[in-house]
Design a binder for these strands. Structure first.
Lengths: 212, 212, 212, 212
DNA sequence: CATGAATGAGATTTCATTCAT
DNA sequence: AATGAATGAAATCTCATTCAT
């Protein structure tokens, strides 16, 4: 767990976890509203339901809050993807299901994802790398699903590229909502992206025809 | 011009433009290095080659600098795309050329683009919309090129989606360089993205075969 | 005892004394290392081997710790001087012995003495006076020894002045160690100071000649 | 000058000096009253006659104020000693004059000297050494005067020891005023200390008899 | 008796902005 | 037009002390 990365002066580990969850919850909504830099530690404390002194019993610096927030978002995304993605099943359907689920997830967590992409650069080099690892893990999951679901072999590079494309198309749904969510519903967006994805994979199966 | 959006107490318009260009140049490199919030107005003044007092003769607030910077980046990107893209020619080649040029541009301006994506949310609502309009213009250009280059008609929604995909794939090249630029050169990245693009458009032309 | 000056909520007097000794021991080394003001109560508690809550069962304020520490140092110095000084014997030798012992003591307790001189001004007026009384007692002991050891009578003022001189020359050994301990060993320092002391007293005895 | 050790963001050197003098004057009286640690930077700013923001234009940290204060005290002491001490004249009178002047100086600057001795340990290692050098310079001056004024040669160590004794006897006058200034006036204190000093030097001259 | 989580006043420091020169 | 000294609101963080368990 990332919690181990941020020392606390509180000994009771259960309490640390509980308080940090309060903290993350409070901070996320503030960061969404006004960004990390324009949010004050006092506001974070208040939104978390405790005093400024208590806040600093659970973190060392304001940046720790950002780390906890980013890490928790990544963790939640990763968790849900692990639940939802079956890296074993070897059908094109499982790929479609994975992408659909991932897009759904990105829709659910739009704000959080936007925050993360905005603020992750404010983390220290180390923290950034720690958090980025989770992104690599997720990418690896997508890669695996793609690899499994295609019948004819494909260059690893191409698989990786497609995984990246899917990955950011998911994020783009939230990130560029001002543009996309005027023209598409989540369903239509998913349907068309999946369509082009399958075209790219040269899958002329029934599924493909269904989606076009 | 965006300059008109930001009032200055200096009368001489030529001077205003000159000073603001100094300012933008200085500020961009600072924003790239440490981000908007961690850059001070004093640093901007110094990097621009004049005093803090003078800085404030040409802007009202620190946010004005960010606006000027973002706007200038968008402007430069848009300019170069207009030079490079021929929205008249009706061949698949002109699409390939457009994408290639755009990716090249994104490669040249990696840092600037990253800065912009990081910091644009710190602008006021109005400034954001002003700047976003330029993005819409660029998207419209891509849309036009796509529309022209396909022989069989396509749903407007699909064209728009593909334009968006191209658009962010360009940005992704800079934004996710830690991942992509390990596996690809700009050329190979462009080649494979163009390949999948053409697959999606169902263009089984000579070019397509060449690129696969 | 000074302990009576600082109330505790604990009834068991034996325990109070035990805990306070732990406290003093822990605090002294911290004060030596970083000074009173830069030492936190948490650090004192930790160094004493108990919790911050427990610390406050045995004192009222942080200043109480300083008082206890200063008082304990004075007490120890005074104790050892009482053991070592014989205010009855009426020879010049007993003066030499007293000075030598006192200098030895100052050498043993260098750090403590430095701490005391640094921090005693942070005590409240009352506490300062309480602690200063012990200094007066020690001065009185020196005065007595001097008075006894001279054959021809001397002005009380002069005796007092010489006592003061001896007193601070002892402290100076620790206080100005960066200077003195480069040029002298404790022995040579003692020998020369004793020499000049006897010159001042106009004692042209055998001892005097021995030391010159 | 020590001013060079502490960077300022103000360019006008004359102004820097002026403001820092205001600062030192304000700070000294506060440090005398309540000590360095219990004095806030806001209080220093106010006592200096400018705002907290302005204060920080002339220093980097609170510790810089302490350094400036300590250094200025040392500098003033050293200056006045240089004016007053004639290291050329080779009579016992010039030694007596030097000691008398030095004691007078210590009387004038009692508070400042006490502050310095209390707080110098709060300086960084480097700053401490910088400041201590001035003390060594002064000691050297005393040494020189002693060496000149004695007719029969004396061990260098002894000269150094006597210089140290004089040095701290001067400080003791302020440092232990609660004790000494009850029994002595500055004149009587000086007279008797000079007396014992000359005894120690074995000078049985007319001056000596006058002082006894 | 002992513990340690909670508190919040208060300290230091920064920095966007103004304005007299 | 240009300068840069002055300002003070506001931000982060610390730490002595309390009190429920």
């Amino acid at each position: 767990m990332a919690d181990q990365q941020v020392p606390s002066s509180i000994k009771d580990q259960g309490l640390v976890e509980k308080r940090r969850n309060q903290m993350i919850k409070g901070a996320v909504s503030l960061f969404i509203e006004k960004g990390f830099h324009k949010t004050t530690t006092r506001e974070i404390a208040k939104a978390s339901g405790f005093s400024i002194g208590t806040l600093y019993e659970y973190i060392r610096t304001k940046e720790d809050v950002l780390f906890l927030v980013c890490d928790s978002i990544y963790e939640r995304v990763k968790d849900r993807m692990e639940q939802v993605i079956d890296t074993e099943k070897k059908t094109i359907d499982s790929l479609i299901h994975a992408v659909t689920s991932y897009f759904q997830l990105m829709d659910d967590m739009q704000d959080e994802v936007v925050v993360m992409y905005q603020e992750v650069k404010s983390l220290s080099r180390d923290a950034q790398e720690y958090v980025l690892q989770k992104e690599k893990d997720m990418l690896e999951m997508l890669t695996q699903v793609i690899r499994n679901s295609i019948s004819t072999p494909m260059a690893e590079q191409d698989i990786s590229l497609i995984a990246n494309n899917i990955f950011i198309q998911g994020q783009m749904w939230g990130f560029r909502r001002w543009m996309l969510q005027k023209e598409f519903t989540l369903e239509s967006y998913t349907k068309r992206q999946v369509h082009f994805l399958l075209e790219g994979l040269n899958v002329n199966s029934i599924q493909n025809q269904q989606t076009s």
